[in-house]
Simulated scan of single mutants.
Amino acid sequence: MSDESHHERELGGQLLASVSRSFYLTLKALPQELREPISLAYLLARTADTIADTASVPATVRIECLNDFESLVLGGSDDVKAHLTKRITADFVAHQSDEAERRLMERFADGLAWLGTMQGAPLHAIQQVLQRIIHGQRLDIQRFPADGSLRCLQTEAELDEYTWLVAGCVGEFWTEMCAIEKPASLDPAVSLEQMKTLGARFGKGLQLINILRDIGEDIQDGRCYLPGFTPEEVQRDSRILQPAWQHWLGVCRGHLDCGLDYIRHVADAKLRYATALPLLIGVKTLSRMEKTSWDKLLQGVKINRLDVAVILAETAIACRSVESMTKLYHKLGQH
């Protein structure tokens, strides 16, 4: 058994499933050529995300550990690895209330070992996307240091930058991996750069769904991603955010429409199915949010497992043609 298949079997199964939740459905559905590099990139991104999100660890320590993790992703020294291993064990493992994230922290070095089996263009693409994601996570810690105070993003450019760094660049990476590992899977009538642009907006749309859906929880945690407000205004009455929330909902829908355009130009049916799942679950969530009162929005909105099961079944049929997929997208996203 090769190193690659060993690592994929050890880390790309139960551990990946436990930390990726519904996105594991997409990873599992990918064509074999794409499953390993994309699963690995996702696992390493989730590792960095857990480091960034462990609010009980001081912001300076989290940023230092992210810097070390980025160094190791780029091929850093054994000294850096030994130092980070000690910090992860001492400062992060015990602070994970989620069992899956605790195991992810315990096995962070195994993810790096898996990365060590990659080479050439796939390795470069994984390193590049992780650099961007980690940069976005560092920015998030600096802007929202989890010190008990509420802070707000100041400009639309800050929000757009953040959504690109933590998700839009993933759409570009996904497209690059398709071009590297399975070039016939993309419509030759559309350039790689056009697909990367659509993929970036697709990713930004999925991240905006998270931001709009989690607005109440984020405010409680001291983070307001909707720009243009003071903390005092938001704390006085969160309903002041409603017009901005509606505006960004419209931006999000525009991004998801680009996701639909992206899927229309995926020529491989298996890849089209895997790529469509997050889009269709996302647009269903968006539709539900549009129909929810502000007070209930602050409590969080999700679609349930039955909704997801129905989407899986409908997508399996609809992905056979672009026309059927388009109809399903519009049905699930009805206002």
Score class of each variant (00 low, 15 high):
Ala267His: 12
Thr285Glu: 01
Ala100Gln: 06
Gln32Pro: 05
Pro188Glu: 11
Gln96Lys: 09
Lys81Trp: 08
Glu156Asn: 13
Arg21Asn: 13
Gln127Ser: 08
Arg87Tyr: 01
His265Cys: 08
Lys204Asp: 09
Leu72Gln: 05
Leu27Gln: 07
Pro58Thr: 06
Gly216Glu: 03
Glu233Gly: 01
His6Asn: 02
Ala157Ser: 15
Leu104Gln: 06
Glu290Asp: 01
Arg143Asn: 13
Trp248Met: 09
Lys302Tyr: 11
Arg201Tyr: 14
Cys169Ser: 15
Leu312Lys: 14
Ser287Phe: 05
Gly168Gln: 09
Leu277Ser: 07
Ile63Thr: 09
Arg62Val: 02
Leu104Cys: 09
Arg253Asp: 13
Val93Met: 04
Thr315Phe: 11
Asp237Cys: 09
Ala41Lys: 03
Leu328Glu: 08
Ala52Ser: 15
Tyr24Lys: 09
Leu153Ile: 04
Gly171Ser: 11
Asp147Lys: 09
Asp268Lys: 06
Ile219Cys: 06
Ala17Val: 00
Leu44Thr: 05
Ala157Asn: 13
Phe92Gln: 05
Gln154Thr: 11
Thr326Asp: 13
His95Thr: 12
Ala267Lys: 14
Asp187Gly: 10
Arg151Ala: 13
Leu44Pro: 04
Gly111Leu: 11
Gly75Gln: 10
Val19Cys: 12
Phe173Arg: 07
Leu112Ala: 12
Leu40Val: 07
Ile215Phe: 05
Asp49Glu: 08
Arg87Cys: 07
Trp245Thr: 00
Asp237Arg: 04
Thr285Leu: 14
Arg143Cys: 10
Gln14Trp: 07
Met325Tyr: 01
